[in-house]
Design a binder for these strands. Structure first.
Lengths: 188, 188
DNA sequence: TTCGTCATGTAATGGGTTACATGATTAC
DNA sequence: GTAATCATGTAACCCATTACATGACGAA
């Protein structure tokens, strides 16, 4: 029960702001995150169905009630259960918040996350990336000579990209710390 | 028949340098590309099996022949068919070379790719990224105000990352061009 | 002798995409 | 009237991961 999958969480976060049609949810997922992705309907609608079954969301059928039989636009909205689930997730700063496919989604809801949790998530992500950087760097030093110039360049660029992300996180962490007040929070 | 999947192509490229065990192939995939990935055996071995069936690779069973029944280390090597397929792929500068999950693999074999093809692939990738940048930027300008500071920052960072990749490509393209001689090659 | 790494494989499962099928509404 | 976009959904498929099962080899 504790934590749902990313997509469910993302949809919960989007629907909290206002009820939306499936179509609109998809667009929001595209512009709010990334903005380099477009979830297919083949993923979205089944997810909404699952969430209905789980009682996380409900629907306002616009004209479904008016005319007799026509299926039409459906506006989904959060139920109380869904809202509770979302709050529960927003308070959680565990590993699932730093992981690769999850961090962006989690970050996009920082405006609804309390400052301490934000900081812990940013620090978690930073630690994780720094670890990867170290492993990768070490592995690289061991085999450096076996690589041609292009492979080496590819790896250099890969490392550089991650290094930059770490710098970005450092900047955000610093901002969060100073907004929080002093030197109070300690990192693991 | 024309183009195989990325994994097949990557394995072909790795085995061309020398015959390897499945285990070693996996490690190479990890260090040569990225270096942020580790393919699972659940993907690797079935892929090798498919490639065997397709006649792209063959095996040197080390001690399989010596003792009677023991399954042991298997060194895979390219067959002539496999080598031909690889060459065919290496000459191809089509869209499948610029796509997201494919570009890295393709780039890692640039030492076995002729200069003109290299240039066309780099240009293709650059064009694709620049397009995405434009679309994303336009989409963003339209909805900017609807976003909170965190969402905006996430998008800013995403765009910046892609911009940097474009700069990286520009540098590589320039190098390839000057190595090629004059101003001869024309981009689409 | 036991621990870490090398080594090979299968079955169940998961999470996504594409292609298909359908139709309403809006702007030109 | 016709094209674009809005809008919903299913079925088939793809490609990967995780968990499981097995065992050899070298070093402490």
């Amino acid at each position: 029960m504790p934590h749902s999958d990313v997509l469910t969480f993302a949809i919960l976060g989007i629907l909290e702001r206002s009820p939306l049609h499936g179509y609109q949810i998809r667009k929001r997922l595209g512009t709010e995150l990334g903005p380099f992705r477009a979830l297919s309907y083949g993923s979205l609608y089944p997810a909404l169905k699952r969430m209905m079954t789980a009682g996380l969301i409900g629907m306002d059928a616009d004209d479904l009630k008016v005319k007799g039989s026509r299926r039409s636009k459906i506006a989904y909205r959060l139920t109380d259960t869904g809202r509770n689930r979302l709050e529960q997730e927003l308070a959680n700063a565990g590993a699932s918040s730093w992981e690769d496919g999850t961090f962006d989604v989690r970050f996009s809801m920082f405006d609804r996350t309390d400052p301490e949790t934000r900081l812990r998530i940013l620090e978690g992500r930073r630690t994780r990336l720094a670890e990867r950087l170290e492993e990768a760097g070490a592995a690289l030093r061991r085999v450096r000579d076996r690589h041609d110039a292009y492979t080496a360049e590819l790896q250099r660029h890969g490392l550089e990209t991650v290094e930059r992300e770490v710098e970005w996180l450092d900047r955000l962490i610093e901002e969060e710390r100073s907004a929080l007040g002093g030197t109070e929070t300690n990192s693991a």
